[in-house]
Amino acid sequence: MGTRYKVVLLDMDGTFLDSRGAGEIPNEWAYEAFKKTLQHYGLTLTIDEINKLFLAPLHARGEEGVLNFCHRFGLDCEKFWSRREKDVIEAKITAIRTGVIKLCKGSEEVIRYLSTRFYLAVVSDSQQACVNYALEHFNLQPYFAIWYGRRSELKSLGNRKPNPFYINKVLRELNAHKEEAILVDDSPVGVLAAHRAGIDSVLICSNDEKLLKCEQKPTFLIRNLNELKSVL
């Protein structure tokens, strides 16, 4: 099983990086970063309002969702997005540096093991600066052949999963055939991106609810990254 694979692509957040933080509120560092952005414009929103008015439209409609948010509050969208990206990148890097964000348990060992058998790549919807910092901070760069996060321009939101943009970019740069590659992700949108790229996928899924959200069935299903050895 899996002997035909030459390239393993890994998502970052939720796959090998636990970006939720240790507080009672998951991703509290990110909410605080967004509140900082809002304060610059004299705005105050609760977490529920941020989820409803900004994050849900952002995840569902990308650039259009951000444009609608800015229109609602009369914001210059390009300037707002630039400030938002700056604040969230700084907050995430600080959270990694101070230990709020950590590696998922056992992930370094798994990555080290995989690197002896496959070419490894990161394809993340997090900003490139955050991917760079995380790999450097946790000394993971030597294990990966290539790593991609998204660019910070507003239009780059269109390249996020389920768009296979970065998956295809990795395949081209590593000169890999589709049947030789597999994506490991903790999100159904990652599974869909893999399907659209024509490659296999592994979904990290600890509950049935996530599986039910899958528009496309993953090739393999595991509960955590440590089980990846049994698949690959």
Rank of each mutant, 00 (worst) to 15 (best):
E28P: 09
V110F: 08
I101R: 07
G158R: 14
K161V: 04
E24W: 02
G65Q: 10
N168L: 14
T219L: 00
G2W: 04
E173Y: 08
H137C: 04
S206K: 12
A95V: 06
F118V: 11
N159Q: 12
L140S: 14
W29E: 01
E90V: 12
F80E: 02
I111H: 11
T46H: 11
V110H: 09
L221N: 05
Q39A: 14
V184G: 06
F80M: 03
I50S: 11
L38R: 05
G23Y: 01
D76Q: 14
E24C: 07
S201T: 12
D208L: 10
L212N: 12
V184P: 08
I167L: 15
Y166V: 03
I199A: 08
E64C: 07
H137P: 03
E109V: 15
K155R: 14
I25S: 04
D76N: 15
P164T: 04
Y148V: 00
I93V: 13
L43D: 03
T219M: 00
L212Y: 07
L225G: 06
K213N: 15
R4M: 14
R196D: 01
L232H: 11
W81R: 06
Y5A: 11
L183A: 01
I50M: 15
R150E: 02
L75S: 05
A95E: 03
D87V: 03
H59D: 11
